[in-house]
Amino acid sequence: MEILLAVTIGLLYAAGIFLILRRSLVRLIIGLVLLGNGANLLIFLLGRISKGQPPIIPEESKVFLDAYADPIPQALILTAIVISFGLQAYAIILVKRAYRVVKTDDIDNMITTDEV
């Protein structure tokens, strides 16, 4: 399972970076989405994945008796997903507006702000 996840994360990062380097605005957004998902999965994987071990202390004890799944990565991913959801929604609207105003989706033509 770890190896499968690791390969998936690598693919997501690679595809994301490849798409960011393209000239089209739409691919740029998709690239950013993929990168964000890759980062979220990476947190999940590096928090060590374990199956069927909820982090709940039994009633008769005060500490964990057994190995347990770390709940923090999931809380982190939840936060990161919500944040990236908002940012991606914003970025999509921005690209749409930029396309309407600048009338191109080719990043190479968006050079007026770089002129001296």
Binding site: L45, L46, L94, V95, R97, A98, V101, T113
Partner: peptide, 27 residues
């Protein structure tokens, strides 16, 4: 809007890299 496309892209990229760093450190 043109400036914002560049600003937004690179700041989002920076956030993803920062988050990757956090993941590795937490791991």
């Amino acid at each position: 809007l043109e400036g914002a496309v560049k600003y937004v892209t690179l700041n989002l990229l920076a956030s993803v890299i920062f988050l990757t760093g956090i993941a590795v450190l937490y791991g």
